[in-house]
Design a protein around this nucleic acid. Structure first.
Lengths: 135, 135
DNA sequence: ATAATTTCAGACAAAAATATCCTTTATTAT
DNA sequence: ATAATAAAGGATATTTTTGTCTGAAATTAT
């Protein structure tokens, strides 16, 4: 997610950023990050180009996508639908103890992730108002 | 957590439940569960007794404890204080993009876990109104 | 065409989480 | 006292997640 934020904020002008740069800026192991970015490319969340001056980039459509798309792509959507205690049978008719309470939390998370867009933080990131650095 | 619910609801009368019974009732591997329960005993959340008719049990004080105590004991309290993007430097003065939004979610989770008690679901569990079964 | 750059893909390795086994210790009942 | 029961503890195994390495494929520039 941090990687996507970085790509989005630095390629809004049509440029591209390389793997090495992204990894350095967000303190993430390069090859591991490559896996994730490749996956996000396959799933159409960001784009990439090979060769010199190639790299990853985000187009206008990417900017308007909700964060939930990233979460779904990387982690699946268990967080949006799953039970708080991890029970597969938990539902309205066969609830776990925390079902009702957890549903509220889950809905809030879902709401936050679906109403927040990838491009939303670009300006603040470029201004240095907010940070993606791990340490 | 499911294990604690089971212990609580079945030992409110002063009896004890054995490891095997708990594991069977919540569909959890016996020896793995043993580790967790031992840990919860060491941390004073539940009690145990060795020997014939021994087992795990919950006293009155346990019943009134918040669920957050279990979460802290098992998983630590990163969920109560940590950054949504996993950044160690994220704070009010050096926020990550999701800081403000994530804080709301975190606070709701914290509120839910601190205001809900272990013993709160005993009756419903014994009535079969709610379930701890995994499958 | 060739060489340089950069992502892509798959195999491999390390670490962490999850699960299992075996022995010891405490308690109870005979 | 002895035997049986049940948790405690430590060592080991398995699985999943995370991270690394190597080489191939694509693109660009010379």
């Amino acid at each position: 997610m941090r990687a996507v934020f970085y790509v989005a904020s630095n390629t809004a002008d049509g440029s591209r950023v390389g793997l090495k740069e992204i990894a350095a800026e967000i303190d993430s192991p390069e090859h591991f990050l490559a896996k994730i970015l490749q996956d996000l490319c396959r799933k159409g969340i960001i784009d990439s180009a090979k060769g010199p001056n190639g790299g990853f980039f985000a187009d206008a459509k990417t900017m308007t996508r909700p964060l939930s798309d990233i979460v779904s792509a990387v982690d699946g959507d268990a967080i949006f639908t799953g039970c708080g205690l991890g029970l597969s049978q938990c539902s309205e008719i066969n609830p776990c103890p925390l079902h009702a309470e957890f549903k509220k939390v889950r809905n809030q998370i879902t709401h936050m992730l679906t109403t927040t867009t990838i491009g939303q933080f670009n300006k603040q990131l470029l201004n240095g108002k907010i940070s993606l650095k791990k340490t």
